[in-house]
Write a protein that binds this DNA or RNA. Structure first.
Lengths: 291, 291
DNA sequence: CTTACGTCATGCACGAACGGTATCAAGCTA
DNA sequence: TAGCTTGATACCGTTCGTGCATGACGTAAG
């Protein structure tokens, strides 16, 4: 086996083809350099260079070994730099969980900001509902999640990314659309309703139930994904209450109308992460969350 | 900058996640190991692992650095082995020059034998006429050549690979072919002759001139490549004198007939190389030339 | 709460290895 | 043949890595 110093010494000699000049380049004197090369050749049991009265010449093995040395030395030079970049969060991977529906409008902007501010950080995208994000956060499968409250977990920190109102989504030809203007909760009592699933979309369901009096016979279908719900509205199966950002999706055949009873900040989207995280890249991402 | 010992030490600790066991694996005691890791972290200015009361844990930078260490160590382990193989000629490149025509029948067999005996040696093929092979040998562009004598160069060693007779190549429908049997030099006086070029195929031209009396008006065309000459014969432009191994090429439309005046060992093919060569792979090839 | 154990860090002393200076041997050049 | 240039060798001082003994700290058991 050989040492990196020997590799550097050999590379210098092989490039200068002259012990004296190589020693100068290495900031040392010629005799110890000669000894290092001898020791290297002895440990390899291979003659790397032939000494001539006028400088030295590489053997075939020496040529190949020089190549290997350069590769190793290049790697050794870069490794500390890489390690530093990773430690400072300028380089690395952040695994991000997001909910299909609500993240559509903030995710793109967030990714663009990360790309611009810390281009060395790769974001791994993992689509999952809020509950599964908490689970993934807990067992270390993701570093950060874009989800909706509540977050019942130790050491979870979060930042509110966006608030919006719930609006009424109705098919283009619907009477409420023709009439136009805000809709009241009472008016919806007459409508067929596409409802959020109790298990998979608990957050939205609770919001809807808090705003209007949902009777069992009003519900035409139940779905968990906002996109599915909007598609069912477009197909004429009823109306639904969805975040107003759904309008930005530009789904054909669906129109959104304000709901009188919904506060503007009813639906919340948070970023959440573990304060105990040891991923330095995450530290770089968190400051980019606020606006 | 760090040392290979530090890299090995870190790899052991990172894999064992325990200083004591890592030290044992490294055949050393724990205190100096701890110090080496500290020194490593200090030189990198990066914390690679976090010490817990029950063993240690890798940081993100530590994970990445472990990966780099493994790559470097693997390369460092293999480099000496490679160097040894190259020095012994079991691994390497031999640049081989060959003449297009005459090498066709020995080249394949030679390459097969090399592949079988020293599979680590790659043969680079360079097609060139004998004169250019000598030149290439002299300036180090090839290591060995398959050529025809004479070799006017210092320090050239050679081995005869094959001898053969010159034969008459004639178009299938030619009267000599219909008659069959050996042809005499006198008979050829009546024929149109495809002749070897004076500059590019001096060896063959001299042989032909030594066997038959070539008059200027007999020559229909002049060419340097045996393949070209045979093609001209096939096209009915005349007859030619070519090595008998041309028959093995199986060119359509051409028949070869013995020439009475040609000794069986008239045409010689040699392998030639510099005795001053420093290519160990060449030393492995040379013993394979005989037979 | 205290004690015992296990973990990694530190202090100290020894020895191997590295680098520097002085010098040598060999080969080419004038 | 004398002088220069090349790499190799001899000797010595210093550095650095290693092992032993011990310390600091946190956890687990009594």
């Amino acid at each position: 086996m050989f040492t990196l110093d020997q590799a550097r010494a050999f590379a210098a000699v092989a490039e200068e083809l002259h012990f004296g000049r190589a020693a100068e380049r290495l900031h040392m004197t010629q005799p110890p350099l000669s000894r290092q090369i001898q020791k290297l050749e002895k440990s390899l049991e291979v003659q790397l260079l032939v000494r001539h009265p006028r400088g030295v010449e590489l053997t075939a093995a020496g040529e190949a070994f020089l190549d290997e040395c350069r590769q190793v030395l290049a790697k050794v030079d870069e490794a500390p730099r890489r390690a530093r970049l990773i430690a400072e969060g300028h380089l690395g991977v952040v695994r991000l969980g997001y909910t299909a529906a609500s993240a559509y409008n903030v995710l793109g902007e967030l990714l663009a900001r990360i790309k611009a501010e810390v281009p060395g950080v790769t974001v791994e995208l993992h689509e999952m509902v809020s509950a599964r994000q908490l689970e993934a956060l807990r067992n270390g499968a993701i570093d950060i999640g874009l989800a909706r409250p509540p977050f019942h977990l130790e050491a979870v920190e979060s930042a509110q990314l966006r608030t919006e109102a719930l609006v009424v989504a109705a098919p283009s030809g619907h009477p409420l659309v023709k009439r136009g203007g805000p809709v009241s909760a009472v008016e919806l009592q007459q409508e067929k309703l596409i409802m959020h699933s109790y298990e998979q979309a608990r957050y939205f369901r609770d919001l809807v139930v808090g705003l209007i009096d949902v009777r069992e016979e009003m519900i035409s279908y139940t779905a968990s994904q906002v996109l599915t719900i909007v598609a069912l509205v477009a197909a004429g199966h009823g109306v639904a209450l969805v975040p107003e950002s759904v309008a930005e999706l530009g789904m054909g055949g669906v129109v959104t109308l304000p709901l009188e009873e919904s506060p503007a900040n009813l639906v919340q989207l948070h970023a959440m992460w573990l304060s105990t995280s040891t991923n330095p890249a995450l530290e770089r991402i968190i400051p980019l969350l606020g606006r």
